[in-house]
Nucleic acid binder design. Structure first.
Lengths: 185, 185
DNA sequence: CATTAGATAGAATGGTTGGTCTACTGTCAA
DNA sequence: TTGACAGTAGACCAACCATTCTATCTAATG
């Protein structure tokens, strides 16, 4: 017999989808209905809406998508980094694209104590490490600054693509990334 | 006698402040109370909350702040453009900084028909024109691409500064902008 | 003075919010 | 068989939401 995922997984999946398409202010009712799960299960597993949202951000596979794009590009750091921007072009040009879920959550949740913030910070920290390592392998004179620059480019691409997709910000960012990669000591 | 601004101006000012610190999902009650204005006046002047928010974005003086920073930097396009990033460093490092109000509104309002979206698009279009002109004067080989790159940098700076202010994204973006300005045909 | 427009105060509406609570059902192990 | 446990279903709560409404006040205009 087919075993559909348990309530916890169904809740995460529904929250993943609805908070992305409708924003983090989606009602609990909508999530419950979409997950086909009892109200109680949400509070049992995640303690409340805030906990669910935080868990959604923690388990977002956005970072692994970048890593996969890198790995498919081979070994050379330059190609691996540029592959991320090629992937960004694909992502941002999809009709279903609605911006970066981390940035959206960060801006929408104005309570500084919301558990989502630390998840976003952890996510960005991970990305910074990823790119700094790659830049170091590439022989960049200042990998940490370079990684900061690349992260700004990525955040900017995802933010800008929402309002001006026709500008193809991912391509513009890719061209900028090339400039960063060509910096010599 | 002292003449405090009329209800319309007071509403705009209150909405400006509260939608920035609390997000666009602030309640109408809070705005009315903060503006010390009757409920009816809001619907009389702006038709509703959506109209008020759209007008707040339309009359945001963010663009003029960039222009002012440019003008204080003199005539040379390179210096004028870099001055914008110096200004961004000041803005993003303020404790009161909570991100870009346009980006936040764009991401928070998931209804594609919300009047705020066209205001954000108009705002970004203005900025693109501003930078493209400056780059053309500077002799950049592709002013429109260059302007796209600068806009991505600005959006990225404002987005990234919310989560990782210690990275000083404005300084990283400034260094990147220099690379864009140094591109030769 | 009478009229009119703009503003105020606040009740009322109908809907939604996140969260708690009770009652019931199925499963599995002791 | 009993008990514990996880899940379901749905009522319920107080708070909040944007909006509409009536009623009143004020100031300027005719």
């Amino acid at each position: 017999m087919e075993t559909r995922p348990g309530p916890r997984e169904r809740l995460l999946e529904a929250a993943r989808e609805l908070t992305y398409t409708q924003g983090v202010h989606v009602g609990v009712d909508a999530i419950l209905k979409h997950a086909d799960v009892a109200r109680r299960s949400l509070y049992q597993h995640f303690g409340g809406k805030d906990g669910l949202i935080a868990e959604v951000l923690r388990t977002a596979d956005t970072g692994s998508r970048y890593r996969r794009a890198m790995d498919e590009a081979g070994d050379e750091p330059r190609a691996r980094i540029l592959a991320v921007f090629d992937e960004l072009e694909k992502v941002t040009m999809r009709p279903s694209f609605h911006g970066c879920r981390h940035t959206a959550a960060e801006l929408a949740l104005t309570d500084p104590d919301h558990p989502a913030h630390s998840e976003v910070r952890a996510y960005k920290g991970d990305l910074h490490r990823l790119f700094a390592e790659e830049l170091a392998r590439h022989g960049h004179p200042d990998p940490r600054l370079g990684a900061d620059q690349l992260l700004v480019l990525i955040d900017g691409t995802l933010a800008h693509a929402v309002t001006r997709p026709d500008a193809h910000p991912a391509l513009a960012a890719r061209a900028t990334a090339e400039l960063i990669l060509d910096v010599r000591p």
